[in-house]
C-alpha cells in the first residue's frame, strides 16, 4: 500500500519539473496576457488599469489592423505559392542524378541557411534605388532604375522577391524528398500502360507528393505569417504597404508602448489563425487518407 503511495508521488516528482516549467513559461504568460489585453498596460509605465473591452474595440475600429491582416494574407499566399511552384519545379528538374548535382544542390540551399535579418540588410543595399548593385547593373544594360524599396508599387514585391529567394530552396528540398520517395516501379507500370507524361505527373507524381508538399506549405505558411526580419530590414515596421501582423505588433508594443492593445490584437489574430489552421489540417488529413487509399 505504502509502495503504491510512494510510486504515485515518485511519478509526480518526475513530471513536476517539466510541469512547473510548462506552467511558468507557457500557461502563466498565456493567462497573464489575456488579463493584459483588458488593461492599458504600457511597456515602460508601472501603472495600468482595467479598460474592459476597449482594446478589442480599437482593434476593430482602427483600419490599420485590418489592413495589416490583409497585407499578411496576401504576402503568405503569394510567397508560399511562388516558393511552392518554383521549389517543386526545381526539384522536378533536379530529381535525376547528374554529375554536379551535389554542388548545384548546395549552392541552391545557401540562401535558406543564412540569417534573415542579415540577408534583409544585404538586400537593402542591393535594392537601394540610387546606389544599389541591382540598379547599377540595370543601368549598365540600359534599363530604367526603379526605386525598389521606396516606390509604393514595388516595395511589397521587393520584400516578396527576397522572401521567395530565401525560401524556395526549402520547398525544393521537401519536394525533392517527396519525389525521391516515389517507388520507381510505379512509373514503370505507368510506362507499360502507355500513360502520357502529363497523365503520369497528374495521376502519380502529384498525388504521391501531396502529403509532404502539404506539410511544407503548412510550415512555410506558418513561417511567412510571422515574417518580420525582412520587413524590418527592408522597409521598417511602419510602412503601410508592407506592414504585416508582426511588424504592426512590434510597432504597437515596442514603439508605441501599448502592451494592452498589442495583446488584444494578438488574441484576435490567434483566433483567426487557429480557425484557418484547423481547416487546413482537416484538408491535409483528407489528402493523406486519399493518398493512402
Amino acid at each position: 500500500m505504502r509502495g503504491d503511495w510512494d510510486r504515485g508521488w515518485l511519478r509526480y516528482g518526475f513530471i513536476a519539473p517539466a510541469l512547473v516549467l510548462l506552467v511558468a513559461m507557457n500557461i502563466f504568460p498565456l493567462l497573464y496576457s489575456i488579463v493584459l489585453s483588458f488593461t492599458n498596460a504600457d511597456l515602460v509605465g508601472s501603472n495600468s488599469s482595467w479598460v474592459g473591452v476597449l482594446n478589442y474595440k480599437f482593434v476593430f475600429k482602427f483600419a490599420k489592423y485590418g489592413q495589416a491582416l490583409r497585407t499578411t494574407a496576401l504576402f503568405v499566399f503569394l510567397a508560399v505559392a511562388c516558393e511552392l511552384l518554383l521549389g517543386f519545379g526545381l526539384a522536378y528538374a533536379l530529381r535525376d542524378r547528374f554529375a554536379l548535382k551535389p554542388l548545384v544542390l548546395t549552392v541552391l540551399l545557401v540562401p535558406m541557411m543564412l540569417p534573415q535579418a542579415v540577408m534583409g540588410l544585404f538586400w537593402k543595399l542591393i535594392l537601394n534605388g540610387n546606389y544599389g548593385a541591382l540598379n547599377q547593373f540595370l543601368g549598365l544594360l540600359g534599363f530604367s532604375q526603379p526605386q525598389w524599396i521606396t516606390d509604393p508599387d514595388l516595395k511589397f514585391l521587393s520584400v516578396l522577391m527576397v522572401d521567395v529567394w530565401m525560401w524556395t530552396p526549402f520547398m525544393m528540398l521537401i519536394s525533392l524528398a517527396a519525389l525521391q520517395a516515389i517507388p520507381p516501379h510505379i512509373y514503370e507500370a505507368a510506362a507499360i500502360d502507355r500513360a502520357s507524361p502529363w497523365r503520369t505527373f497528374r495521376r502519380i507524381t502529384l498525388p504521391m507528393c501531396a502529403p509532404l508538399l502539404g506539410l511544407a506549405v503548412l510550415l512555410r505558411a506558418t513561417d511567412a505569417l510571422k515574417q518580420f526580419d525582412l520587413i524590418m530590414a527592408l522597409t521598417g515596421p511602419n510602412d503601410r504597404v508592407t506592414q504585416t501582423l508582426s511588424a504592426l505588433l512590434y510597432q504597437t508594443v515596442f514603439r508605441d508602448g501599448k502592451v494592452g492593445l498589442g495583446t488584444a490584437y494578438s488574441y484576435v489574430i490567434l483566433v483567426l489563425v487557429i480557425a484557418l489552421a484547423s481547416v487546413f489540417l482537416r484538408y491535409m488529413g483528407r489528402l493523406q487518407r486519399e493518398s493512402d487509399s
Binding site: K64, P152, N238, D239, R240, D256
Partner: peptide, 18 residues
C-alpha cells in the same frame, strides 16, 4: 509615437498618390 506613425502612413499615402 502613435500620432507620428499614423501621420507617416497617411502623409505617405498622399505623396504616393494612393
Amino acid at each position: 509615437n502613435e500620432l507620428l506613425a499614423a501621420a507617416v502612413q497617411h502623409l505617405g499615402e498622399a505623396l504616393d498618390g494612393v
